[in-house]
Simulated assay, not measured.
Amino acid sequence: MGRVAIYYAPLPDDPLTPLATAWLGRDPVTGAPAAQPPVAGIAEVTADPRRYGFHATLKPPMRLAEGRSWRELMTAVRAVAARIPPFDLPRLSVQDLWGFLALRETTPCPPLQALADACVAELDDFRAPPSDAELARRHAAGLSAGQAAMLRRWGYPYVFGSWFFHMTLTRRLSEAEKAVFMPAAEAWFAPALAVPRRVVDLAIFTQAGGDAAFNIAERVRLRG
């Protein structure tokens, strides 16, 4: 196993799941390709999020620290989930996030922030330090002083006060591309976005290594 991440991902019976699988062009459970909507250029603009699978990051992808095992990590994940009760997710909408399209909540959700904070802090002993190349790539993107401090301490710049819920739908788009893909995404996801949903589990995604895709390995129910 190359890396592991703790994500939120909609349940298999959530109407959002088949729509997102088709939009990104890959099933994150089986890894099988999926037919995408008939929008010119969609395969290219979804290539990056396709590899990661449809999700919102709670604990960013990490390699396991030396001496740590998958079994130990899963025991710790279950301990986190045992303390946190399920909660309602605010209605989602397609939003422009720094040029990327993503599904984001329409109102603040403190339980969502608390869940992400718990995953970052309480599972950090299992995280191997990022490589120099990974750190350089993050810094090259341009970070605030606070984000740089988070990167040094937690291996990722967007945690705690810098964290934000988002389920990525595209790479960064030009204005012309956004004029095509924003209305296409709004129309495509509209039926599912009208449906209420709850956060009831943590989705454990794994990556075999290198540029391999992330797939769902296990789900852990929230039982608080």
Rank of each mutant, 00 (worst) to 15 (best):
M1Y: 09
G2W: 00
G2L: 01
A5L: 03
A5C: 03
Y8R: 02
A9L: 02
P10M: 03
D13V: 11
D14W: 13
L16H: 01
L19K: 07
A20P: 04
T21G: 00
G25I: 06
R26T: 06
R26F: 02
T30F: 09
G31H: 09
A34P: 05
A35E: 15
P38C: 10
V39Y: 14
A40L: 12
E44L: 10
A47C: 06
P49V: 08
G53N: 10
G53L: 09
H55A: 04
A56H: 06
P60G: 01
P60F: 03
P61Q: 00
R63H: 06
L64Y: 05
A65I: 05
A65L: 07
G67Y: 09
S69N: 10
S69W: 07
W70L: 14
R71F: 04
R71C: 01
L73F: 08
M74T: 09
T75P: 00
R78W: 08
A79S: 14
A79R: 15
A82L: 11
R83V: 13
I84P: 00
P85Q: 02
F87G: 04
F87A: 04
P90K: 02
L92W: 14
S93Q: 14
V94A: 08
V94N: 13
Q95P: 12
Q95T: 15
D96E: 12
D96M: 10
W98K: 14
W98L: 12
G99A: 03
L101T: 12
L103Y: 13
L103N: 13
R104D: 02
R104S: 10
T107P: 01
P110Y: 02
P111C: 02
L112Q: 07
L112C: 00
D117C: 01
A118P: 01
A118Q: 06
V120I: 09
V120K: 02
A121Y: 13
A121R: 15
A121L: 14
E122L: 14
E122P: 12
L123I: 09
D125Y: 00
F126A: 01
R127Y: 04
A128G: 05
S131E: 06
S131K: 02
E134T: 13
E134M: 08
R138I: 01
R138W: 13
H139S: 05
A141R: 15
L143F: 10
G146D: 12
G146H: 08
A148P: 11
A149P: 07
G155S: 03
P157G: 05
V159C: 03
V159H: 02
F160C: 00
F165R: 05
H166C: 08
H166V: 08
L169F: 08
R172Q: 15
R172S: 15
L173P: 14
M182Q: 15
A184S: 06
A185F: 14
E186R: 15
A187M: 05
W188R: 11
F189M: 10
A190D: 15
A190G: 12
L193T: 13
L193Y: 12
R198F: 08
V199P: 06
V200P: 00
D201H: 13
I204S: 03
T206P: 00
Q207P: 04
Q207I: 03
G209Y: 12
G210Q: 06
G210H: 07
A213T: 11
F214A: 06
A217R: 12
V220N: 04
R221D: 13
L222F: 11
R223G: 02
G224R: 08
